[in-house]
């Protein structure tokens, strides 16, 4: 973990998607995050409103660049969306625990922007020659949310999509796709990232099956480094911190009722 001062190389909307941005940062020397870890990006260089940094997963890592894909949905991301190419920007990282490695087929389950963090995991699997045994299940509100699909396909990952309005892929939820997939004759390891209710659904679908499921949780966060104790996640063993004990947890660790209520 370090506070890096780097440069914005690009901060543009992906083609056809109005409320998202792809932020490309110059990768600082020595910055070697693993899939599942996150960074705290300073959205405000000099001012104090918005005050806090915002946590983002890493969508891609190249020798010279770091990619973050985010949705503009609050004051922090709105400010970040105003930042321009060539500006200096700080981020703290890498933070938190990564997705535990596993042998065998991998099932990546993404709800909306949750696909961003799983893209980095897919890249790592591709580097290990395992993309062919990985499947992405992607669920979105409508077809605009499916822009991630091609990125996974390019890596050689099989993709199956669902939209809530039925405008593309199967009509329904990503957890419906998951149940279908689990009915097939194999025991994958599940890596999931997305909204609270969806992750609870992933736990529902996998519990008691002997299938290992890992979920990446999103919470309000202040420091990102364990100092403030602000990002409490209710687990079966009491509160744990999303920033240092997570953001990746085994699905069975979480107290899902409390987590969904508070999300």
């Amino acid at each position: 973990m370090r506070d890096y001062d780097t440069l914005i190389l690009a901060n543009r909307r992906p083609a056809g998607v109005d409320d998202c941005r792809r932020l490309l940062l110059r990768r600082p020397a020595g910055f070697t995050p693993r899939p599942g870890q996150f960074i705290q990006i300073e959205v405000n260089r000099a001012g104090t409103d918005p005050l806090l940094r915002r946590p983002f997963s890493i969508a891609d890592l190249q020798p010279e660049t770091v990619t973050v894909i985010y949705r503009v949905q609050g004051r922090g991301t709105a400010r970040l969306a105003e930042r321009r190419r060539g500006e200096a920007i700080r981020f703290l990282g890498p933070l938190g625990k990564d997705y535990p490695a596993a042998d065998g087929p991998c099932l990546l389950v993404a709800g909306g922007m949750g696909a961003a963090g799983l893209l980095f995991l897919a890249r790592r699997l591709a580097e290990l020659g395992r993309a062919g045994s990985a499947t992405l299940l992607l669920g979105c509100r409508d077809r605009n949310g499916l822009f991630f699909r091609t990125a996974f396909q390019k890596l050689g990952v099989r993709t199956v999509c669902a939209t809530e309005d039925g405008s593309a892929g199967r009509a329904g939820l990503v957890t419906d796709l998951l149940r279908n997939e689990l009915n097939r004759d194999r025991k994958p390891v599940v890596y999931a990232c997305g909204p609270a209710a969806m992750l609870a659904g992933v736990h529902e679908a996998t519990r008691g099956t002997g299938i290992r499921a890992y979920v990446s949780l999103e919470t309000v966060m202040a420091c990102g480094s364990g100092l403030c104790r602000g990002c409490a996640v209710p687990t079966r063993a009491g509160y744990r911190m999303a920033c240092t004990d997570g953001p990746v947890f085994a699905a069975e660790e979480i107290d899902w009722k409390a987590y969904v209520e508070n999300a």
């Binding site: 104090t48 409103d49 918005p50 005050l51 806090l52 004051r75 922090g76 919470t219 309000v220 966060m221 202040a222 403030c228 104790r229 602000g230 990002c231 409490a232 996640v233 209710p234 009491g238 509160y239 409390a258 508070n262």
Partner: peptide
Amino acid sequence: RPGNPPPRIAETPSGLVNSIGLE
């Protein structure tokens, strides 16, 4: 002390309101 239930953090203009609860 286990601390308070989440959310424990809320951002306000140039400020931060916390309810950690002496965890």
